[in-house]
């Protein structure tokens, strides 16, 4: 996880992991998200020097967005470029909510992976995702708690609740989407 290699090495290490994660390898996904988190933190720390308290929250918000949008990843694009484009989008969104105009000189899809420096040590968050989880509708919260926190498989969660396996999957996805919305709304 402590990855101080150059950005090119970052991409070449991340890409195979990410492709395995995309096809369903959970361990690879965990490892890839962990590596991405340290790079996001480094990138956002530099860009948010005036708002250091926001860094870790934005890291988490970006990770949530990456997860929800992993279906839009195109394998011909470097993973780091894709991650950076989403991080930039979230950063601009934060500035806008803070009432600042976009940095217009900073084209959104201008991808320079050298910006993704590693920063493994985690900062403090101001918002607690666990608390926001309490605001989700009951079925969504339960599906997330069972599969994500208790670590049940979808089938086990389905047996526990009486809902079908596909309903559980839908509830988890909707719940995470709703959570991402709550995160944005809370910051406004």
């Amino acid at each position: 996880m402590l990855d101080d290699a150059s950005p090119d090495d970052f991409e070449s290490g991340l890409k195979p992991l990410w492709l395995r994660a995309q096809s369903g390898d959970e361990a690879a996904y965990r490892e890839a998200l962990g590596r991405i988190a340290t790079r996001l933190r480094g990138y956002l720390r530099r860009r948010l020097q005036s708002l250091p308290d926001e860094v870790e929250d934005l890291v988490q918000e970006t990770l949530l967005a990456l997860h929800l949008q992993r279906g839009t990843y195109d394998p011909t694009v470097p993973v780091s470029a894709w991650v950076l484009a989403i991080a930039r989008h979230k950063l601009v969104d934060l500035w806008r909510r803070r009432g600042r105009r976009d940095d217009r000189h900073d084209a959104l899809d201008d991808v320079d992976e050298a910006l993704l420096v590693a920063a493994p040590e985690e900062g403090e968050t101001r918002r607690d995702l666990g608390r926001l989880l309490q605001q989700l509708p009951e079925a969504q919260r339960r599906a997330i708690l069972l599969t994500k926190v208790e670590g049940l498989s979808v089938e086990e969660a389905s047996q526990r609740t009486g809902a079908s396996a596909s309903a559980i999957k839908v509830q988890v996805h909707r719940g995470l989407k709703r959570l991402a919305q709550l995160v944005r709304m809370e910051r406004a």
Partner: peptide
């Protein structure tokens, strides 16, 4: 919630990425 905990959380039971999400 710690970021590392969120990573664990998102990856747990994540399954494959949705296919043809855009279409």
């Amino acid at each position: 919630m710690k970021t590392q905990a969120l990573v664990e959380w998102l990856s747990r039971g994540a399954g494959p990425a949705p296919r043809h999400a855009v279409a």
